[in-house]
């Protein structure tokens, strides 16, 4: 299967700030003023889309934006103000354990009658809900593991070797047909979705954007390397059981072999990644830099916080038979 390589165009604005940033990147207007950034809801659609657009310039960018704008100092200035709001919201919203091992330990216990999205989809998810789930998640999975690659130059020793090994696995272990982003595109094709990079940006809610923005925030700031590692550990620890439930959802609905394979692969891969991330990346980092313990815990907690918000959005809509997306797919 060929995954289209063309970059997306800038998304539709969701408010004053995202509109101003879009206009600025199209060379048709000024940047938003600082007061507007200070007034906007930090986890709302407008600010999250604005931040997503700023970060996307570091990944594959937009077809209608010059590649040089990645390092536009005035834009970076506004982005810093948006990031500050976002980071404050994460610190306010995430529960506080204080210690990394406590925060991680909590994720290692499987609730018997849990009520998350993967359980809903496993037991009663319909094909249209699986399609919506894949569309929301595609913002991340089509660049799976990319945001975490930013942390590699900020690590060394055991943490770096472990992180690089897991990333190598995420990127297909040297084989293009096994790159996880590509496996996800194949899942999308099974679900009759558009596999183009960034295609569902306009459809995805603020809650889905916030999760990808958190990865970019933690990945792009060396000061937040501990949070990136904590976030990554949280993802790898929770992925394996969640993927097993999603694989069952795909099988039950007859979504298709590639859709099943994506989650089957993650059951096995992430059972390994969990071990490597906990015992080499997290332990290695904290051995070298024990003062980052609280940051690792913060990364774990912020991940849980934002994942819970996405779950609320999805289940809230689906339980009343409504779409969780901004536009139909």
């Amino acid at each position: 299967m060929d995954v289209p390589s063309r970059e997306p165009t800038l998304p539709c604005a969701r408010g004053r700030i995202s509109a101003a940033i879009g206009g600025y990147l199209r060379n048709t207007g000024p940047l938003p003023d600082e007061q507007a950034v200070l007034r906007a809801a930090p986890l709302g659609d407008d600010l999250q889309l604005a931040l997503y657009v700023c970060y996307e310039l570091h990944y594959r960018g937009f077809a209608d934006v010059d590649a040089d704008r990645e390092w536009d100092p005035d834009l970076l200035n506004v982005r810093a103000a948006v990031e500050q709001r976002f980071l404050e919201a994460l610190r306010d919203g995430a529960p506080r354990h204080g210690r990394a091992d406590e925060a991680l330990e909590e994720l290692l216990v499987e609730p018997v009658d849990g009520s998350g999205v993967s359980r809903f989809l496993q037991h009663e998810g319909e094909l249209w809900q699986l399609r919506e789930y894949a569309a929301q998640r595609s913002l991340y999975h089509l660049k799976e593991a990319d945001p975490h690659a930013w942390v590699l130059p900020r690590l060394w020793g055991r943490a770096k070797a472990g992180m690089a090994a897991v990333e190598f696995d995420e990127f297909g272990g040297g084989r293009a047909d096994r790159v996880h982003a590509r496996l996800f595109a194949e899942l999308m094709a099974d679900l009759d979705l558009n596999t183009s990079y960034g295609h569902y940006l306009d459809a995805a809610g603020a809650e889905a954007l916030a999760i990808v923005n958190m990865m970019s925030l933690f990945g792009l700031h060396r000061a937040l390397r501990g949070a990136l590692v904590g976030h990554f550990a949280a993802v790898e620890i929770t992925s394996s059981p969640g993927s097993r439930r999603l694989a069952q959802a795909m099988r039950r609905t007859g979504a298709g072999p590639a859709a099943e394979h994506f989650y089957d692969e993650h059951v096995e891969a992430d059972a390994v990644h969990e071990q490597v991330v906990r015992w080499e990346v997290v332990a290695g980092l904290l051995e070298e830099e024990p003062h980052l313990d609280g940051d690792v815990a913060f990364g774990v907690e912020a991940t849980t916080y934002l994942e819970d918000r996405l779950a609320e959005r999805l289940l809230g809509a689906w339980r009343t038979g409504e779409s969780s997306l901004r536009i139909p797919v």
Binding site: E110, P111, V112, D113, R244, V267, A271
Partner: peptide, 12 residues
């Protein structure tokens, strides 16, 4: 292969 089934489970 491990699928993390060794984990403790807990009632909510």
């Amino acid at each position: 292969w491990c699928d993390t089934s060794h984990r403790k489970s807990e009632r909510p």
